[in-house]
Write a protein that binds this DNA or RNA. Sequence first.
DNA 1: TATATTATTATGTCTGCACATAATATCATT
DNA 2: AATGATATTATGTGCAGACATAATAATATA
Lengths: 228, 228
Amino acid sequence: MITNWEDIRAEVLRRIRTRFWLPGAVIPTEEALAHEFGCARATVSRALRELAGAGVVERRRKSGTRVALHPVRKATLAIAVTRLEVEGRGQAYGYHLIEAVLAVAPVAVISKLGLSLGSEWLHLRCLHLADGVPYLAEDRWLNPSVLLDPSPDFAIISANEWLVSHVSYARGDIAFSAASATQGEAEMLDVPIGAALFIIERSTWGEAAPITWVRLAYAPGYRLHTAV
Amino acid sequence: MITNWEDIRAEVLRRIRTRFWLPGAVIPTEEALAHEFGCARATVSRALRELAGAGVVERRRKSGTRVALHPVRKATLAIAVTRLEVEGRGQAYGYHLIEAVLAVAPVAVISKLGLSLGSEWLHLRCLHLADGVPYLAEDRWLNPSVLLDPSPDFAIISANEWLVSHVSYARGDIAFSAASATQGEAEMLDVPIGAALFIIERSTWGEAAPITWVRLAYAPGYRLHTAV
DNA sequence: TATATTATTATGTCTGCACATAATATCATT
DNA sequence: AATGATATTATGTGCAGACATAATAATATA
């Protein structure tokens, strides 16, 4: 008797991983499993739904549930506000605003956010520190119209942290890549020009207009990881 | 009247993103929302549970549901089998086995998988191509005891693809980082030594013993991205 | 034979109810 | 004032039943 959806999920996962049910094979119906485990169909359904969300099984009406043939590993990364990420490791967080100017956004940013040409945005360059050591170089373009009156002081609070608690957004996009350190990044992070850096680029849109585009260049050694 | 959990999730998300409910604020109870929307409590519960899973709200018994103060963006990356990733973009997939030898695993691998010192593992080096261009250099250490009899021919099928359909695993770990191309990687990918590469490292364990450790070095230009 | 039409099936969703559980508030006791 | 017992509250889980929906199979029709 298993009447707990987490235990059922574990048992089904066990049968898949031990290859009792092979990749591509159809597993018993919800009703059959509910009967076997001595629980309600809804409970089995909950367990299988979670496994489908994790990419372990694929489900289709009428045809049933089958073990995923090519398990798309869904790695879920938790991307926190930088300050909390650093403090969460027990390190002291530091933050410096390097530059904040109104300027015409470069074409790369314009095209990614779909801006009109020649529009002036706020350009921020900042450095985040962990235990006093350069941790992350931030290069951000920010739609000035989202700034409230009075405008926040980005020398004190990081744009990221201010944005998440003051500006509503509708959708966003995150990309991960690797790049060689530019001269500016090399200076900020105190590494040689050309060093391999881990890059996160984010675009964020509000309901009507784009909000911000940011490139985060992490100091060498940075790793994002997750259990599967 | 909203009696559909996805619509309820959308409506709650709208209220949060339009800052009708502010970060940190407690939102109405499931029962109150169910009454407002004219649906059952379970339906609201389902919607809020999904939002909690996405990191948008935080829920605690007795205290209720509140809008996440520091929304940990949970970026879910879909990591497919390389062949399907390439073919999914409409490119021709190519695969070459460079080397396959039994050898003593280096300390870095031993420590990551918790192997006993001096054990001989199968060392594979392979190159994956997209439209004939080097795409990914793979450096893999594989526990020879997982190989069935007859042993698969890794000159024809990639280890990744063979493993997902032939070996059961219990848990794994994925890490993303950036690194400068080693001499071997530079040769395989046809890039200068020191070029910034996107790196994925994976460790996989079976129920009892470790199965494999692999380092995937992607050619410059590779990006992983996801909508939020 | 090819093409609609209809039945069947397994998952997807919603409801109303019950009880479990964790966190908090309240109150009595020392 | 500090401590401990008790009540209250909101979420967490489970159940049985109903109907919706998508995909497939079976059947009838041109």
